[in-house]
């Protein structure tokens, strides 16, 4: 059987003579075997490429997580300081605030009270009409 090195050295006429020689038989299913070999090589190459990409991402992923955590910590708002050191002063502020809130609520209730006659008027008119 000829070796590839020998086939390469042969000239074109010698190769044509070999091709025309019917005594030399081609192994059965050679074409299928060649196709299978090419396919498995292609698959192997594709897997190698995927593994390389996966390894690259695996190396980068911890850095991405560290960067994300760093960003979260960096943007976290600072701890607040009490405005007052003295609880009595804080209490005075709180009392003033609640007084203000209660004034606003009273104001709202007063306005609602003023509106009550106007709200009741249609009901009274209706009552008078129904009585007739």
């Amino acid at each position: 059987m000829k070796r590839i090195d020998d086939i390469v050295k042969d000239d074109f006429r010698e190769l044509e003579r070999i091709a025309d020689d019917n005594a030399i038989s081609v192994p059965d299913a050679l074409e299928d075997k060649v196709r299978d070999a090419l396919l498995s090589t292609a698959i192997r190459n594709e897997r190698r490429r995927g593994n390389r990409a996966g390894k690259g991402l695996a190396v980068l992923a911890p850095f991405a997580v560290a960067a994300a955590l760093g960003l979260v910590i960096w943007t976290r708002p600072p701890k607040l300081q009490d405005t007052f050191d003295d609880p009595a002063l804080a209490y005075a502020q709180l009392e003033e605030t609640f007084t203000y809130i209660s004034n606003q609520i009273s104001r709202g209730l007063d306005i609602a009270d003023e509106a009550a006659p106007a709200i009741n008027k249609p009901a009274e008119t209706l009552k008078k009409t129904l009585k007739k």
């Binding site: 009490d82 405005t83 609880p87 009595a88 804080a90 709180l94």
Partner: peptide, 21 residues
């Protein structure tokens, strides 16, 4: 104008024996 009173300060206020009302 900003005023902040923390939970700790509220606890201290709650434990004050005499509140100047």
């Amino acid at each position: 104008t900003g005023v902040y009173i923390s939970g700790s300060m509220f606890k201290m206020m709650g434990e004050m024996p005499e509140i100047p009302l």
